[in-house]
């Protein structure tokens, strides 16, 4: 299903124009209150809007929500607490065709998503990850042409959410379903997206691939939001044991997660660089000493520019922490790059 949005406006959104290709995985990225959920709700037909939405060139503005062929996974899931897993999955199918025997179809879906064992349980008897899977299965049960996902993995732990994101991506590819995924997490967006749309203050600031937006964005609002990542060129690298890689970046040896692909660049966001005037305790990797070359205050945060060997890093701290640190230009400073948040690119 191809989606086209023309001049869409309402109480938050301002003149949104967007095309989503058939079977594309589009990620809507933006800070809280940017209008991401409102845009999904408009596509789902749950709130009024001005402008037009087309599915495969057919105007759907007058079509009620339940007939738009969408599967919607809400941020807080909203599994019906009084229905079992099976009944939750069957709900949409029964609503659309009450007389049809849908048991086989639901069983098949439960099997596909490995939920068969818990079909008679109530949502309150499931773990966070299981609930997420059930909600996804419910959204997919009616075989929608468009899947809308509103920060679906926000409330579960990092490990489970990574595993579920992987499952979702595979399922989306298998089903070839046009998907719009809302998040405010940069790395989640980068991991999932075929294309990214950055939405800030109800308007689209930039549309492009991950590399285009992360490395070449010129839009000030976008740069402010994604935090101008520190990008380092990798001269050479050595694969270590346990899924890590040691990259040589202009004389600095940086340990990063290895994702099995060639590495030409490393990126780390300013907020993921820890700084201290004193020696940082803990394992001695990704810890460097540098010199503060500039201090850039910006409302509630302060950016500190640090030179380390031949590289320049930008670190970001809250104003309170900055005041406690009492850093001045020219100070020698210790910095640590948080391993988990270092990203590698081809």
């Amino acid at each position: 299903m191809e989606i086209e949005i023309k001049n869409l406006s309402n109480f938050i959104m301002r003149n949104i124009n967007l095309k989503v290709k058939n079977a594309e995985f589009l990620v809507l990225l933006g800070p809280n209150g940017a209008g991401k959920t409102t845009l999904l709700n408009s596509i789902a037909g749950l709130i009024p809007y001005e402008g037009n939405i087309f599915f495969n060139n057919q105007n759907i503005d007058e079509i009620p929500s339940g007939k738009r062929e969408i599967g919607y996974l809400f941020q807080d899931l909203f599994l019906f607490p009084h229905l079992t897993v099976f009944e939750n999955l069957a709900y949409g199918l029964k609503s659309q065709n009450p007389k049809k025997n849908i048991d086989g179809k639901v069983e098949k879906l439960l099997f596909t998503l490995n939920l068969l064992e818990m079909k008679n349980r109530y949502p309150s008897e499931l773990s966070g990850g299981e609930r997420q899977k059930v909600a996804l299965a419910r959204a997919l049960a009616t075989e929608p042409s468009v899947l809308l996902l509103d920060e679906p993995f926000k409330s579960i732990d990092l490990h489970t959410s990574k595993y579920l994101r992987n499952d979702l991506k595979n399922l989306q590819k298998k089903l070839q379903i046009t998907t719009i995924y809302v998040t405010h997490n940069l790395f989640e967006a980068e991991e999932m997206a075929d294309r990214l749309v950055v939405l800030i203050d109800g308007k689209i600031c930039e549309i492009g691939t991950v590399n285009e937006i992360f490395f070449n964005s010129k839009n000030k609002d976008v740069l402010r939001f994604i935090g101008e990542p520190n990008i380092l060129s990798v001269d050479s690298y050595k694969i270590l044991e346990s899924g890590l890689v040691e990259a040589n970046c202009n004389g600095m040896k940086i340990i990063a997660p290895y994702e099995g692909k060639k590495i030409k660049k490393l990126a780390i966001l300013p907020q993921d660089i820890y700084i201290s005037l004193f020696e940082i305790i803990g394992p001695k990797f990704n810890m460097f000493q540098g010199k503060v070359i500039d201090i850039l205050p910006d409302s509630s945060i302060v950016r500190v520019k640090i030179s380390v060997e031949k590289n320049i890093f930008l670190s970001e701290v809250s104003r309170d922490i900055f005041n406690d640190l009492n850093i001045k230009t020219g100070d020698k400073i210790n910095l640590m790059l948080k391993l988990r948040w270092i990203k590698t690119y081809e």
Binding site: I70, G92, T142
Partner: peptide
């Protein structure tokens, strides 16, 4: 809202 999107 969920029920509406499911066609109820």
């Amino acid at each position: 809202r969920v029920a509406r999107t499911l066609g109820a």
